[in-house]
């Protein structure tokens, strides 16, 4: 009981820290101290964190190369917008529809394709992502290629913050649970995992569905902030962007994914001042970082309390 008291104390402290952070963000935004431009970047950052962390569960922890993440984001974005914009339902219903829709899509796509290995899975998921896009392009109810314009701006700081925290809590929890150990065993050695009696397909599908669900959440937040969605926003290039964050952060590191998402968003914003060569610089940075740090910024390590404690200890 002694130990649990200590944990309880820590938990309270952490909840307080999170709450304080939220309040601070809310304060900066509502007083206008954080200019709109930075607000938009902060929003992109949160959405990218959700996308990167959810893809990192699939690519980094489960070791299944998926190139269709933008497709799930598209499903989430469209599902939520149909609810709020077409059917005039509240945002929370839109969010739920996005999560469920994307999870369902993840399940439908995951079950047949996750038997595939490595690059075959990559290309199959890429194919599915593109199919989702082509299908959306041909549904007139959701605007065809022009998409849906004039989406209500429901994505507030509160929603963003809560969603980002929720994603982190759920995915970190999942990874540290017995499910997570099974999932990582699939990555490390699928054959050995199977021999140990782990139903590898089941765990792959679980990771895939959870990852897809959060991509859907990101899609809903995206749609209700950026005013318009169209199929063209969700091509395989978008999937690549997310993959870049995951690999840059380090495969199998949630903190890495978070840092890389922040880094890439900030980099994109920074490069805006060089309109003519921004994509060239982006490409060069990508190549150079990969050559000098192929394992990603964090490798498969995490920044946790232990790391900090060690640093602290060192200083003392």
């Amino acid at each position: 009981m002694q130990g649990s008291g200590k944990i309880g104390g820590r938990l309270i402290a952490e909840v307080a820290a999170v709450a304080a952070l939220f309040m601070l963000g809310q304060f900066l935004i509502s007083t206008g101290m954080l200019e709109q431009y930075y607000q938009i970047i902060l929003t992109s950052m949160c959405i990218n964190i959700i996308l990167a962390v959810s893809l990192s569960l699939i690519n980094g922890f489960t070791g299944q190369l998926s190139l269709g993440h933008a497709g799930f984001m598209a499903v989430g974005a469209y599902a939520s917008v149909v609810m709020t914009n077409r059917l005039d339902l509240p945002f929370i219903i839109g969010i739920l529809a996005a999560c469920l829709g994307a999870a369902l899509a993840g399940f439908i796509i995951g079950v047949p394709t996750l038997r595939l290995k490595g690059d075959y899975l990559a290309i199959a998921t890429l194919g599915f992502g593109e199919i989702i896009r082509v299908v959306l392009q041909n549904i007139d109810y959701v605007g065809g290629p022009s998409g849906i314009m004039g989406i209500e701006k429901y994505t507030t700081w509160a929603w963003l913050f809560a969603s980002t925290i929720l994603t982190l809590v759920v995915i970190v929890n999942l990874i540290n649970s017995s499910y997570g150990r099974a999932i990582i065993s699939v990555r490390e050695d699928e054959v050995a995992a199977e021999l140990m009696g782990i139903n590898t397909t089941r765990y792959k599908v679980i990771a895939f569905v959870v990852g897809a669900m959060f991509a859907g959440l990101a899609g809903a937040l995206y749609a209700h902030y950026f005013y318009i969605i169209k199929p063209e926003s969700f091509t395989f290039m978008k999937s690549f962007d997310i993959l870049v964050m995951v690999v840059l952060g380090g495969l199998g590191s949630t903190t890495g994914a978070v840092i890389a998402a922040i880094f890439v968003t900030a980099l994109t914003a920074f490069l805006q001042s060089f309109p003519a060569i921004r994509m060239i610089l982006y490409a060069l940075i990508l190549i150079i970082v990969m050559i000098y740090r192929p394992q990603g910024l964090m490798g498969n390590k995490e920044i946790g309390r232990k790391t900090l404690a060690r640093l602290w200890g060192g200083k003392r």
Partner: peptide
């Protein structure tokens, strides 16, 4: 000799570089 996915990301970088250069 590093992971194949790192090489894949580099390939994406090279692709973007060739296009935009």
């Amino acid at each position: 000799y590093s992971t194949r996915i790192a090489a894949l990301i580099t390939a994406i970088g090279v692709s973007l570089f060739l296009e935009y250069f």
